[in-house]
Simulated assay, not measured.
Amino acid sequence: MTSKPTLQDVATAAGVSRSTVSNAYSRPDQLSAALRTRILDTARQLGYPGPNPTARSLRRGVAGAIGVLFTSQLSYAFTDPFAVRFLAGAAGAAERRGTSLLLVPLPTDTTQARAAVENAAVDGFCVYCAADESWALDVLRARGLPFVTTAPRDDAGADPYVGIDERAAARSVADHVAALGHRRVALLAESILPGAPPGPLRLAEVGDVPHPTTRGRLAGFADALAAVGVAWTDLTLLNATDNSRAAGATAVAGTITGDDPPTALLACSDVLALGVLDALGERAATVSVTGFDDVDDAAAAGLTTVRQPAEEKGRIATELLLDPPPEPAARHILLPTELVVRTSTRPVPRS
Rank of each mutant, 00 (worst) to 15 (best):
P49Y: 09
S172E: 14
R27I: 10
A77G: 02
S172Q: 14
A251I: 09
A115K: 04
G157H: 00
R114T: 13
L235C: 12
T213W: 14
V306C: 12
S344R: 10
V104P: 01
G89N: 11
A186L: 00
T42W: 08
V127D: 02
R97Y: 05
A83K: 07
G199D: 01
T214W: 02
D223R: 10
Y48S: 12
D29Y: 02
A178I: 15
D9W: 02
R315F: 08
D294K: 07
G67I: 03
L322P: 05
V295Q: 05
S17Y: 01
S3G: 15
S17E: 05
R153D: 08
P328Q: 08
T54Y: 00
L218A: 07
A284L: 05
T345G: 11
A222Y: 10
P325G: 10
S100M: 01
P53G: 08
D109K: 00
A264C: 02
P200L: 11
L238R: 06
L266N: 13
D296H: 12
V68T: 13
W135L: 12
T290Q: 00
D296I: 08
V252S: 06
G314H: 10
G181W: 03
A186V: 00
S57Y: 00
V209S: 05
D165G: 08
G281N: 02
T6Y: 09
D242C: 04
A33W: 04
G15V: 06
L46K: 07
A14C: 05
